[in-house]
């Protein structure tokens, strides 16, 4: 019975989710600030808010194809520049220096900030995983 009620709750809330297109001005202030600092006044091609069951996320695609994802509060948690490089200032210094040491010729395509670790994608196809203290803990190639 409890299961049924739970399933009902999920089924009902699932209806509430979905994507909605927004303007740049509707992003949280912190997110707008982040865009202005690291991407200048590059226009937004597409910005949307993605409602999950218990969460809210913002996805912004800039006119040059960069994609940035923000949490509910406007903190960035993913920056992906598939055809360019992620602005160096975004990458934590400790991580950037390690990457530079090991792979001097590559650029960072994407950085993903998870709850306990960072995932960094490089232009040579490698994926590096760093823990909260910026120690390299894993590869994925």
């Amino acid at each position: 019975m409890l299961m049924s009620v739970l399933m009902l709750a999920i089924a009902l809330t699932a209806r509430a989710d979905g994507d909605r297109l927004i303007d740049r001005e509707q992003l949280p202030a912190k997110a707008r600030e982040f865009l202005a600092t690291h991407f200048g006044d590059k226009a937004v091609s597409l910005a949307k808010v993605d409602r999950e069951i218990f969460d809210l996320r913002y996805e912004v695609v800039l006119v040059d194809g960069e994609k940035i994802e923000f949490t509910r509060s406007g903190e960035w948690d993913e920056v992906s520049c598939r055809y360019a490089s992620v602005p160096v200032e975004i990458i934590p210094k400790a991580i950037y220096s390690q990457i530079n040491q090991r792979y001097p010729d590559v650029v960072v395509r994407a950085i993903n900030r998870e709850f306990k670790h960072y995932e960094v994608k490089l232009s040579n196809g490698m994926e590096l995983i760093f823990d909260r203290n910026f120690r390299l803990t894993g590869y994925d190639d």
Binding site: A14, R15, L46, V61, L62, D64, G65, R82
Partner: peptide, 25 residues
Amino acid sequence: VDEINDEADDALEGYAELIIIRHLA
């Protein structure tokens, strides 16, 4: 059903995003 529809939509969106980013770049 809801989850499958949602996932199918997500996949479609991912595909759209890929095209948009390539086009923009």
